[in-house]
Amino acid sequence: MINDINLGGVYVPGLLVIALAALFCTLLWLPLFTLSRRYRRLPWRPLMSLSTYIVTFFLLMQGLNALGLVV
């Protein structure tokens, strides 16, 4: 189960924290993708950015599940 996280008396949903971590990781990955020539030739880059976020979120959830932090 994803527990709430207490930040200075404010409870933040655990899924929101995971989503923000996935967003941060995606923002780190996208500049690396722009260096490749194939990324520049994609017809619709925002779709690639969204799919990168979804894959990053999925992999983060799978990793936390494997560690036993998320049930």
Rank of each mutant, 00 (worst) to 15 (best):
F33S: 03
L15Y: 03
L15P: 00
L27N: 10
L67D: 00
F24E: 08
R37Q: 11
G9R: 10
L59V: 15
R40D: 02
G8Q: 13
V71E: 03
M1K: 11
L47N: 05
S51N: 09
I2A: 00
F33T: 04
G68D: 01
P43H: 11
N3L: 09
F58M: 13
Y53N: 02
T56D: 02
R45V: 14
V55S: 08
Y11H: 09
G63V: 12
D4P: 10
V55D: 02
L35E: 08
A21P: 00
D4M: 11
L20P: 01
Y39G: 05
L47M: 14
G68E: 02
M1W: 06
R41W: 03
P13V: 08
L60D: 00
L30I: 15
N65S: 13
V70E: 00
G63K: 06
L69M: 06
L28A: 14
M1D: 05
M1R: 11
L7R: 09
I54F: 14
G14S: 04
S51M: 14
I18Q: 03
F57L: 15
R38I: 13
I18K: 04
T26Y: 04
L20H: 08
P31W: 05
C25Y: 02
G8E: 13
I18F: 05
V17N: 01
F57W: 14
V55F: 12
L50V: 15
F24D: 06
Y39S: 11
D4V: 08
T26R: 13
L7W: 04
L35S: 07
V70K: 00
T34N: 12
I54A: 15
V12F: 07
L59P: 06
M61D: 00
A19E: 03
C25M: 14
L69I: 12
L64T: 03
G9A: 07
V71I: 07
N3E: 09
L20R: 10
D4F: 07
P46A: 06
M61N: 01
A22E: 01
N3D: 09
L42I: 12
N65M: 06
S49I: 14
M48T: 11
I5L: 12
R37Y: 05
V55L: 15
L32C: 09
V17D: 02
A66L: 10
I2D: 00
D4H: 10
R40Q: 15
R41Y: 04
L27H: 07
W29H: 06
I5Q: 05
F58G: 12
G9M: 11
P43F: 10
Y11E: 11
F33M: 14
L42V: 13
I5A: 06
T52E: 08
W44H: 13
G9F: 08
I2H: 00
L20M: 15
M61V: 11
N65C: 04
V10A: 05
P13F: 07
W29T: 10
V17H: 02
L15G: 03
W44L: 14
L30Y: 06
L35C: 10
D4Y: 07
G8L: 13
L28C: 14
G14K: 04
R37W: 10
I5M: 11
L69R: 02
Y39V: 12
M1H: 05
M48Q: 07
I54Q: 10
S36E: 06
P13N: 09
G68W: 02
F57E: 01
